[in-house]
Design a protein around this nucleic acid. Sequence first.
RNA 1: UCCUCAGUAGCUCAGUUGGUUAGAGCGGCGGACUGUUAAUCCGUAGGUCGUAGGUUCAAGUCCUACCUGGGGAGCCA
Length: 490
Amino acid sequence: MWTSGLKIYKLMQRTKVADLLRSNEIGKTFTVKGWVRTRRGNKKVNFVALNDGSGINNLQIVVDMDQFDEALIRRITTGAALSVEGELKESLGSAQKVELHARKIEVLGDCDPEKYPLQPKKHSLEFLREIAHLRFRTNTFGAITRIRHAMIFAVHQFFNQKGFYNIHTPIITASDAEGAGEMFQVTTLDLENPPRNEENKIDYSKDFFGKPTNLTVSGQLEGELAALAMSEIYTFGPTFRAENSNTSRHLAEFWMIEPEMAFYDLNDNMDLAEEFLKYLIQYALDHCMEDLQFLSKRLQEEEKNKKASERSMELIEKLKFVLENQFVRLTYTEAINILENSKPNKKGKFQYPIQGFGTDLQSEHERYLVEKHFKKPVILTDYPKEIKAFYMKLNEDNKTVRAMDVLFPQIGEIIGGSQREEDYGKLVQRMREMNIPEEEMWWFLDTRRFGSVPHSGFGLGFERLMLFVTGMTNIRDVIPFPRTPKNAEF
RNA sequence: UCCUCAGUAGCUCAGUUGGUUAGAGCGGCGGACUGUUAAUCCGUAGGUCGUAGGUUCAAGUCCUACCUGGGGAGCCA
């Protein structure tokens, strides 16, 4: 799948498996290097499935048993690393078009089959999480890893094409005013014996930065600074939340994409969010089809014991469905009306009943709107100011703010964003109402004092996008090394 | 953090109202097979039943605490 397009392989010492599988250079000699998935066969002939991560499909190596030492053959076990030189031939088998008939085999790295945890059989995702250092070697994680790369690349390509600048916002921050959740503290102080001041409080003036610092929970505020000069920017960086969240949708360390655009109002913001998501999904369909097909089959296999009504939509169909349909846009107030008059609310089926304007929407409500009522992605806007962040622009009604949440089936909130409050006076007033310390935020407020303009932005949780695109159901399976409460292994 | 379910062989699981020597499939190993596709067939090894207490003549099974994992909720992306 990841091919040069040109015949670069002829210049290299080895050929990638994916390139070879698409090649029709029958009769020529190639060298491949990779890891053994399985070996099978008889006294006369053995078949080795070799994979080097270049694609979901393995290369079949045909080994004529007469031509090789039995001792060498015995070392070709699941997980072993090989270098194989041989002749490309049309395959007699039906599962692949071509195969490599081995002339020279070198075992680069042995793999003891009694100890190697990955066996040529199905493993549970939970087990693979415990051996995350090896799970790249499975079909599923190979596919996810390739798709993840493609999505990272597509994010940058999308914004680059639109003239956005990528900004590296700080990972260590002294600002605790973002209000986006619990933070991880960063310190070089001796925790066993920290320096103390006269009041016997910890003396942070002795800390590395001379004040308390944390890992960032969002690059948005710094992103706004850049946008109010560069017009359109985006960040794509790691984000840290020390929430004790134990769900299949939360990580303590995740990657977030945060575009911030000067001169965009809320509608422009929604247009961009929808175009962005559709671009990424289209990119996956255009560049990752084999991996998507594999994941689709995997998902259907996993769900075959479920009732038909509980099975998810076929993965590729689902992705196309999102591409082909406009996201539904409605206000929070309209959503509350729909929910109040909905069957589950009237029948008391909601765990949290809808109690008019001001009710914070629970995930059961969001799921009802997306999965039952509209049956397509929904963008909710204009939430009550009390349940949203201080920086969101206040509407004329003085009750709601220009927030937007993009809700996806199964995942819930995939994007959260808003038009920002650009009016200095209104922003300061909101900060006071919500007890945000103005003094610490002087640099943020300066943008509203000097040449302030309407602007907007949003945050996309990258792993939540990955959940949607891959059809995986646990966020720990779409990031190589998940960090969650009580888990920082590897 | 709360609710809920689970933890038995390398993996996935079964194990009856508590009863004597804890089972299966897959994987591993040995063998058979002239082209296999997670090959097939025959044979074989492999267990401190999550940890610590408790109840009982007797605990994989019952009770308590803790640990770990799954699902759901909250917080959110």
